[in-house]
């Protein structure tokens, strides 16, 4: 009798643990469900749909007609704007991301010096990223206006003829890069760097000082390795973002002059929402996706050589 009682007690406990575990799993899924629903309805579903559409000729409001790889072949061989827009986007990303990441890190380093009033400067640096993009674009076209703009005035003082910036095919992308740097250097990327810098334990600096490291030595051998994960984070997100560059060019140049700022994302947008050629636009979008996934994969594969996780992972 007694043993049976204990036995049934154990079963009851096991049952209770089992129920608690089931409940735990159920609750986990329940809290996950908003994302899961959104993922299926707004992400995986649409992504699959656009992949399917990319194999069709589908000009709204007609019905999609299967064309196999036709859209991809057309893009790679016949579309006069495909390769130019891709090169322009890579040029823009290749210049703006390294400069942007290095610049934000530089600003964060100065803000991280322990002096009074840094929160005031933090706000000053952050100001440009608060300016709406339409206004920033107009502001920038003014400052760079080649005849009466502020920069032209400054350049003429030192005897340089201002380039025509947004009006010239060679200078339009550099002008857009300047705009992007102004509005993003002090933005959330700088804050993320600042956070990374503040997360470096003081003991490491003390230890380095005791070992005879000067300020450059501390920067080179403590700060830099400790923030490589932050640099990596900003680099990965920066490249993903820069390859999708759209709004500044759309607002300030509309892709001109003479297609000079016709970035890849602009090409997709105009194909989809001005010519309503949804099938072709989907193929364009997927090729960009493959490029971004590939570049991100390469970065993760090479991260081991230079990103320091301090024993984690």
């Amino acid at each position: 009798m007694g043993t049976r009682k204990i036995g049934s007690g154990q079963t009851a406990t096991r049952k209770a643990i089992f129920t608690a575990r089931r409940r735990h799993i159920l609750e986990g899924y329940l809290y996950l469900s908003p994302w899961l629903l959104g993922f299926v309805a707004l992400f995986a579903g649409p992504a699959a749909a656009s992949l399917a559409l990319s194999f069709t000729r589908y000009t709204v409001p007609s019905t999609p007609a299967f064309t196999g790889l036709g859209n991809y072949v057309e893009a790679l061989t016949a579309d006069p704007q495909f390769w130019p827009s891709l090169w322009k986007t890579l040029y823009y990303a290749g210049v703006s991301v390294p400069l942007g990441v290095a610049g934000s890190l530089g600003l964060a380093l100065f803000l991280n010096v322990k002096v009074k009033g840094t929160s005031f400067f933090r706000t000053l640096f952050f100001l440009p990223s608060l300016v709406p993009v339409v206004a920033a674009a107009v502001l920038w076209t003014w400052l760079l206006q080649p005849d009466w703009g502020l920069l032209a005035l400054l350049l003429s003082r030192i005897g340089i003829q201002s380039p025509r910036w947004f009006g010239s095919p060679e200078w339009a992308i550099p002008a857009l890069i300047g705009l992007a740097l102004w509005s993003s250097l002090g933005g959330s990327r700088m804050i993320i760097f600042l956070a990374g810098l503040q997360g470096v334990p003081d003991e490491l600096y003390d230890a380095a000082s005791i070992d005879g490291a000067g300020s450059w030595g501390r920067f080179r051998h403590v700060t830099v390795p400790m923030i490589t994960p932050t640099i990596f984070f900003n680099l990965v997100l920066g490249i993903i973002g820069a390859l999708q560059v759209f709004t500044p060019a759309f607002v300030s140049t509309g892709g001109g002059p003479a297609y000079a700022t016709w970035f890849y994302a602009l090409h997709i947008y105009k194909t989809a929402f001005q010519y309503f050629d949804m099938g072709y636009a989907s193929a364009l979008a997927w090729m960009l996706a493959v490029l971004i996934i590939f570049l991100t994969w390469v970065q993760f594969k090479t991260a081991g050589f230079w990103v320091y996780y301090g024993g984690e992972k």
């Binding site: 579903g45 992504a47 749909a49 997100l237 979008a285």
Partner: peptide, 15 residues
């Protein structure tokens, strides 16, 4: 999902 450009989902979402 951070990697997939918004252009990929934008068109079907719009539809």
């Amino acid at each position: 999902t951070m990697m997939l450009p918004f252009e990929v989902t934008l068109i079907p979402q719009y539809l």
